[in-house]
């Protein structure tokens, strides 16, 4: 036995700060990013949204003036309205379609992998690519409209990208194409995590499949739905690239969205204070959606 191997062991507890030192050093990037960028940046933007900064940020406070101006700007109001319409419709369709596809794939079908690959691949593509492809498909002179017309329906009209009443439909078609795959995968994971025995039990009880979904499965999937909901909504708020690629906000200002308003105000119109006010409003929107969710999560954890 080697008994004299140890040196003199420290008798006192080491200084708190230096215990676990490597770990604290390794955590520096997290602290810098979390506090310095996320918290600090957010506070900075909110503070400067109360100033009259134009080309350069400066601390000349003007109260709520930027917000008043924001809410009386037509382009911002259109942006908000677009976002609300796009958001609600896209939410409903993404959830329904995502669940439907997941439920279909969950029926122990053949070629499940192939179908899943097909439904999900658009998610790998950027919004720019998505927007440009659909811009081409919806091109009135060469795309779907012209093909249908040439098939013997000369009066067929479908040119959403050139019609300010329909432009959101164009965006929705492309947005859903890109994003439903993700929700499908999440829903599928949720469906797969449901105990097989539940299906056996409902079969023994003779409950029809559609009814099983409605009264048993969907209520059990509540957390998955909530997650999907949060994911879709926080994605919608960020909607920007797709609009830029498909319509650049047009025709006119009919497809403007808040994220684009912020970018244009900050970087092309160089009206910083206004841009900060608009981005603060976006933050508020996200907070309104997220706080109830965070509260719910927190309560569930406590139980």
């Amino acid at each position: 036995m080697s008994r004299a191997r140890r040196g003199t062991a420290p008798v006192r507890p080491p200084i708190r700060l230096f215990r676990n030192l490597s770990s604290k050093i390794a955590a520096i990037p997290m602290v810098l990013v979390g506090l310095g960028v996320f918290v600090g940046g957010t506070i900075w933007t909110v503070v400067y949204s109360f100033t009259d900064s134009r080309l350069l940020p400066r601390l000349q406070f003007v109260g709520f003036e930027q917000y008043e101006r924001l809410w009386s700007t037509r382009r911002w109001l259109v942006s908000i309205e677009n976002l609300a319409i796009y958001g609600i419709v896209s939410l409903v369709f993404t959830m329904c379609l995502g669940f439907l596809l997941a439920a279909l794939l969950d029926r122990k079908i053949r070629f499940e992998d192939t179908f899943r690959t097909i439904f999900l691949y658009p998610f790998a593509l950027s919004f720019i690519v998505t927007g440009l492809v659909w811009q081409w498909l919806l091109n009135p002179d060469f795309g779907i409209q012209s093909v249908v017309r040439s098939m013997g329906f000369p009066n067929f009209n479908f040119d959403p990208l050139y019609n300010s009443d329909l432009v959101l439909i164009g965006l929705l078609i492309a947005g859903l194409w890109q994003g439903t795959g993700l929700i499908m995968v999440i829903m599928l994971a949720g469906l797969r995590s449901i105990d097989e025995d539940i299906w056996k039990a409902t079969r023994v009880d003779g409950i029809p499949i559609w009814k099983t979904y409605i009264i048993v499965i969907i209520p059990m999937m509540k957390p998955v739905f909530v997650t999907a909901l949060v994911l879709v909504t926080s994605g919608i708020v960020k909607l920007y690239d797709l609009v830029v690629a498909m319509t650049s906000g047009g025709p006119g200002i009919s497809s403007e969205v808040p994220a684009k308003y912020v970018y244009d105000t900050l970087f092309t119109r160089q009206n910083l204070g206004q841009g900060f006010a608009a981005s603060t409003m976006m933050l508020v929107t996200v907070a309104i959606i997220l706080i109830p969710w965070a509260y719910m999560q927190f309560r569930e954890k406590r139980q």
Binding site: V37, F38, T45, Y48, K238, A259, Y263, L283, V286
Partner: peptide
């Protein structure tokens, strides 16, 4: 946090 909030910082 929406990216727009952090763009300028």
């Amino acid at each position: 946090i929406p990216y727009q909030v952090l763009l300028y910082p």
